[in-house]
Structure formats: C-alpha cells, structure tokens
Design a protein around this nucleic acid. Sequence first.
DNA 1: TCAGTATTCAAACAGTTGTTTAAAATAAAG
DNA 2: CTTTATTTTAAACAACTGTTTGAATACTGA
Lengths: 210, 210
Amino acid sequence: MTGKTGKRKTRERLLVAACEMFARDGFHNARVADICCLAGANVASVNYYFTNKTTLYIETWKYAFQQFEEPAFSDNAKGTPEATLKKYIHAIMKDFTAKGRMGYFSRLYLMELARPTGLIQDTWRELIEPRRQKLHHIIRKIMGKNADNDKVLLCELSIINQCRTLLTIKHSDLEYLLNKKFNSDLIKSLADHIAEFSLAGIKAIGNFNE
Amino acid sequence: MTGKTGKRKTRERLLVAACEMFARDGFHNARVADICCLAGANVASVNYYFTNKTTLYIETWKYAFQQFEEPAFSDNAKGTPEATLKKYIHAIMKDFTAKGRMGYFSRLYLMELARPTGLIQDTWRELIEPRRQKLHHIIRKIMGKNADNDKVLLCELSIINQCRTLLTIKHSDLEYLLNKKFNSDLIKSLADHIAEFSLAGIKAIGNFNE
DNA sequence: TCAGTATTCAAACAGTTGTTTAAAATAAAG
DNA sequence: CTTTATTTTAAACAACTGTTTGAATACTGA
C-alpha cells in the first residue's frame, strides 16, 4: 500500500523514484539506497530488476520518455513564426520546471546537459534530435530560407543555453539575483524575456547575412 | 627538481596542481591523490598544508584570483558601449578557454557556476561582484539610463549563460554540432555570434520599455 | 495442499577516496 | 657534530556507497 494509485509493482516504483532522484541530484549524486527508500523497496531490488545503477539510469530515461507527451507547439501555418518561437520557449520553460511525471523527461534532459554522464549517448540523439529539429525549423523561418546553417545552430544554442539557467543556477541564487520569489509567474517573465531577447537576436543575425 | 622554474615549495606546487584539477574536473570529481601526484607530493601533504580537501579548494580560489589580472576592458568614454560589450564578451570567452595561469580563475569560476559546491560562498560575491558590475554598466549604457534594473539583470544572465556553453557542453559535442575544430578561431566566431545576438537583444528589450 | 518460482530482506562484501598516523628523511639551529 | 624542528613518506584507517549473497517470504499453477 504505497500510494494513492494502489500497490504498483516494485519495478515501476523504482523507476518513478529514480526519475525523481536522478532529476533532482543527477546520476552521481543520487544514491541507490535513497532511490530504493523512496520507492519503499530494498537496496538489493535495483540489482534484482536492473542489474546495476547504470542500467537503472538508462531504463529511467526510457521510462521518462514514455511518460512524456510531446507538447503541441502548433508549428502550423496559422501563427507567425515569431509567435511560434514564443510559444516554444514558454513550453520548454514550463516543462523544465514541471513537477511530477510530465516534467521527468525535461528535467532529466536538462540535468544531463548540465552534468553529462555520457551514459545515454545512444538514446540521446534519438530522443533529443526531434526536439532540436523543431526549434531549428522555427528559427530558420524567422531568419529566412537561405539562412546559413551554422548561424541557425548558434541561435539554437543561444536560446537553449539561456533556458538552461533554470537548472544550473540554484533557485535560491536566482531569487537573490532578481529579488523575486521563484514561482510560475517568474518562469513566465523569464520566458518572456528570453523570447523577446532571442527574437531580436535571431533577426539581427539573419539581416546581417543578407 | 619538479619543473622549469626550479624547485618551488610544495605548498605552491599543490595549489597550482589543484587549480588545474579543480578547473578540469570540478571539486567532487577531482581526487586529492591525483592533485598530489601532479604536484609531485605525497598524499598526506594536502592534510599537512591545508588540513583537508575543502580548505584546499578555498585556498585554491584565493590563489587563482591572485594570479588573475583583471583584463582592461577599456570601459572609458572612447569607444561606443556597443564596441565595449563586444570587447568584454571576447575577453570573457578568451579567459575561459585560456590555458595556464591566466585561465585558472575564469575556469574555476565557470566550473563553480556549472557545478556549484557552495563552499566558497563567502569569497564568491567578493570576487564575482566586480565582474558583474562591469557588465551591468555596459548593458545599462546601451539600454539607456532609466532602464529597468530587472531588465538589465536578465540581459546579463542571457549573455553569461550563452558564454557558459563553452564549459557545460563538452568540446567534442560542440565540434559535432558545429562540425568545426575546437580552437581559438571557433572561440572568436562564437564570441562574435554572442555579441551580435545579444546586442540586438539588449536593444530590443531597451526600446520595448521606452 | 504442495512444489516450484519469483520476490524481498538484512547482512556482508568490495571498491574508492579522504584522512590520519607514526616513522623516516631532511633542514635548521646551537 | 648534536640536537631540534620541519617536511616527506608509506601504510593503515574510516566513511561512504554500489553490489552480492543466501536465507526467508510471498506468490503461482497444478
């Protein structure tokens, strides 16, 4: 009788706990013992179900990706690419800070960006590339069709690395810097800033080249 | 007879080795044994001179800062603030990737940003604030005197977090993404991009508010 | 019920790494 | 040279943590 959803299988409880701990502490700082404790399982259960910590980490990624529903960015002809970019950035930021299942994948993703383990390189590109491609297309639309591919890439990096702030800077430090409480409103205003800042950046890079 | 500079004292050899290792691997991943080995000293010497690893880390920061000569950004009335910003970003990027003594402080700084230990909070603001203030003033000049302080701060973060890419992304990954060799030319083109991208961003944020 | 399988558990084990110790070597002082 | 203080050294120690073990328990199907 572990939770509200009734008695889930130990294996899945371990995966859920692992998502939580790996996303919060990263691979190295997360302890197997703590994951088991959170899952209400014995220490040996990780070895029983996953052989070792490394395999657990890889399986956790796959599990988190299963739970993750790719948000619809409405990358259709309706809105302007500028509006789409803004939506995209807001969606990214919201995902990253989401609590619970929806946020697992995004949080693991950012944690892996911030503290790379190199353990999931195989699945990395398979899972990440689609996300990147989407952003790539949006930026290209704003810059113009014959935009230099390198320039598009650099703009991608500029945007992603601004968003990454949320993970690499401690919330308490961010609160100190901006003198504001860390909540969803702050996230929104950060997203607004990044969108506006980056939109101008992209356009400047684009115009510069024509 | 350890190096070309003759026989330096063990304490200083330890500090130099610690700069190298902490900057490369971060506090947790760097091993005391390896630092001692690089310094050509015994394992116990860290305890002898610095009591423990944590104190060594703190002393390493102070030592690195001593070695560091703040670059002159020529923040005078001569150049336009736009040109000053570009110089500043180039200087930051060059420092971060500098080999040897000059780069120690910048590399430790970025490492601490990427993987905060919280061990040097006391000296942190004392050493970092001056750098931040300098960037702050440049941005304010570009945005206009009555610029909202929060907006200036967010622009600061946007710029710093773009620069941070160089440390948080592995060089091999960057080479893969951009399909270019990681060398000083690449650094310069990255700095150019960030400067141009950010300059437009700052102006957009500034104009938006007037 | 019963046999066989799957799962859980406490305890021990093994590897790594920071720290301490006590003796040996070196340098300094008288 | 002798004595004293300083520094270096190898080895042991201790703490943490991932992994394994083998017995105990729960479950499944006949």
